[in-house]
Simulated scan of single mutants.
Amino acid sequence: MNQRLVSRIEVTVIYLILLCVTIVIFYPLLWTIGMSLNQGSSLYVSSLIPENFSLEHYKWLFSEESDYVLWYKNSMIVSLAVMIGSVIITSLVAYAFSRYQFIGKKNGLYIFLLLQMFPVMMAMVALYMFLNMIGLLDTLTGLILIYLGGQIPFNVWLVKGYFDTIPRELDQAARIDGAGHLRVFWSIMLPLAKPILSVVALFNFMMPLFDFLLPSIVLSSPNNFTLAVGLFNFINDQFANNFTRFAAGSVLIAVPIATIYLFLQKYLVGGLTAGGSKE
Rank of each mutant, 00 (worst) to 15 (best):
A179T: 03
L170T: 04
P167C: 11
S187A: 12
R168I: 14
F163W: 10
D171M: 11
D171Y: 05
A193D: 04
N155F: 05
G161N: 11
T165A: 08
S198E: 04
P153V: 05
K160E: 14
I166Y: 14
L192I: 08
Q172H: 07
D164R: 03
L170V: 06
P191S: 08
F163T: 06
K194P: 03
E169Y: 04
K194M: 12
P153G: 14
K194C: 15
A174K: 05
V159G: 07
R175C: 13
K160R: 12
L190H: 03
L182Y: 08
P195E: 10
K194F: 03
K160V: 06
P153M: 07
G161Y: 08
S187L: 12
V156F: 14
F185P: 00
E169H: 11
K194D: 09
L182Q: 03
I188G: 01
L158G: 00
R175F: 15
I196A: 03
W157D: 05
F163E: 12
M189N: 07
V156E: 02
T165V: 11
L170E: 12
I188R: 00
K194N: 13
R183G: 14
V184R: 03
Q172L: 12
S198A: 05
T165G: 11
H181W: 10
P167S: 08
W186Q: 04
F163V: 03
G178H: 10
W157T: 02
M189G: 02
A174G: 07
F163Q: 02
P167T: 08
Y162A: 03
F163K: 01
T165H: 11
A179C: 06
S187R: 08
T165S: 08
A174W: 09
N155Q: 13
L170N: 02
L197N: 01
L197Y: 00
F185M: 03
W157Y: 09
